[in-house]
Simulated assay, not measured.
Amino acid sequence: MNRHFSIICIGILLLLLCGHTFAHKASDSYLRFKVGDGIIQGQWDIALRDLDYAIGLDSNGDGRITWGELRARHHAVTEYVFSRLKVRSIDARCWHQAPEHLVDHHTDGAYAVLRFAMTCPDATNTFEVAYDLLFDLDPLHRGLLQVDHDGQIQTGVLSPEQRKIRVDFENPAPWREFLQFGKEGVWHIWIGFDHILFLISLLLPAVLCWQTGRWLPQHSLRLALWEVLKIVTAFTIAHSITLCLAVLGFVSLPSRWVESVIAASVLVAALHNLYPIIHTRLWIMTFFFGLIHGLGFASVLIDLGLPGQSLAIALAGFNLGVEAGQVVIVGIFVPLAFLLRRTRFYQRYMLNFGSVLIAVIAFIWLMERSMALDFGLWA
């Protein structure tokens, strides 16, 4: 029974690690509408790396997309993206005019910017947006929508599960936006494998105690849960602080620097399980690195550029979603770890081998992010 249970648990761990190893990095596009007088003024920001993956932009294959290469594919870009965006008023479909092509930089790289207008006589207060960009190529892709109508803002998140959003300024429902961004927060941490591996690296020794130069099983469930609570609380408070500060514009650091330090935090946490230095106050290290992880969470909302009340709704929903996703991970992992803590399997394979494997993956991420390399291990 114990052997089979152990095999199942290590299988879950390996699936988690391997699933991330071959996963594509999640992508977002940013779609902004300004509605007035039967015309929708639009701006659509799409990552150049996503367009290159979808239709090919890098004609000479040197790994860099120049303005000349993008300009040569303007017509192809227009055809591709607008075949995957439909806006419909009550009675008829809206038609777009030829877009203006620009380039801008977001926190995660260069984006093609398409500015356009849509003729939509009946789309004054109510219309529907149907979005299907990249879903066939990247199921992790999200379209982040912002609609401005005479200063009133509505937002939404388009995904493979929700490809249509009804915009209704006559009957606004802020709770829907809250739930959408809450769901996005849950999804964001579940696909944020660097955040997950950091948390698991910290939780692996939480059901053990360091005595006589080695890890021994924790005898008390109460003490184990207390250790878990301190770690999770420190991580939650820390990343919530910097998430809010970054989204509100008080803190801004280069994305490459932030992502590199996040990778380093995973590496340090995994190596600490093998050569522990901090034996009783692991929450201090957790809090310090949690501040950096919060900056990583913030990029989605920063690039959306929401004002006022919409920002507060999105930030609250997103942050609570992140916490809910984190609670699910902890709730699944900790009971299994506590049941297995006395087994040789847990200490040799889950703690030691698992930490080595996490450290190797984190080291590769660190090299990729800090030196702009690509080993094909997306994170």
Rank of each mutant, 00 (worst) to 15 (best):
N2V: 11
F5D: 04
L13R: 06
L14H: 06
L15T: 14
L16S: 13
T21H: 04
A23L: 07
S27I: 06
I39V: 15
I40F: 05
L48W: 11
R49A: 15
D62T: 01
T66L: 11
R71D: 13
R73T: 01
H75Q: 13
F82V: 09
R88L: 12
C94Y: 03
W95N: 14
Q97P: 01
V103Q: 13
H105K: 15
H106N: 15
T107H: 14
R115Q: 14
R115I: 10
T119Q: 11
Y131G: 00
D136S: 14
L144H: 00
T155N: 03
L158Q: 00
S159D: 01
Q162D: 03
Q162S: 05
R166P: 01
A173P: 00
P174W: 14
K183T: 11
E184T: 11
W187P: 00
I189L: 07
F193L: 14
L197W: 08
L199Y: 03
L208C: 05
G213C: 04
R222L: 15
V247K: 02
G249K: 04
G249V: 07
R256H: 11
A269N: 05
L274M: 12
R281E: 05
M285G: 07
T286D: 00
F288K: 00
L291K: 03
G305D: 12
P307D: 09
P307S: 12
L311E: 06
A312M: 11
I313Q: 06
L315R: 05
F318P: 00
L320M: 10
E323Y: 10
Q326P: 03
V328T: 10
G331M: 09
V334Y: 06
L336N: 03
A337G: 10
T343L: 11
L351E: 01
L357V: 12
L357D: 04
V360D: 05
I361T: 13
A362M: 10
M367S: 07
M367K: 08
